[in-house]
């Protein structure tokens, strides 16, 4: 899978959670990439995505900034 396809796959996972009503509330970044933690306000469930591609790491952080400012 090309890097672009990997990005699209990761972006889709992020978008999926967002559409289900999840919000990003925290992210840990280390040698293996980013571990982005999502929280569903209504149900109180947490989910973590391991985001590896550079473009997806840019993407989730922009979403995160957007969520914070709104």
């Amino acid at each position: 899978m090309s890097e672009h396809e990997q990005y699209l796959a990761e972006k889709e996972k992020i978008d999926q959670l967002l559409s289900e009503g999840y919000n990003i509330y925290h992210a840990v970044e280390n040698l293996d990439g980013a571990f982005v933690e999502f929280f569903h306000l209504k149900s109180g469930t947490k989910k973590t995505l391991h985001i590896r591609t550079a473009n997806a790491r840019k993407y989730f952080s922009s979403i995160f900034i957007q969520q914070k400012s709104s």
Partner: peptide
């Protein structure tokens, strides 16, 4: 592309969530 986002802005946002 998406709304501009610098590294400094990104790190500030991520760090504030800790």
């Amino acid at each position: 592309s998406m709304q501009p986002m610098t590294w400094n802005e990104r790190q500030a946002a991520l760090n504030s969530s800790k």
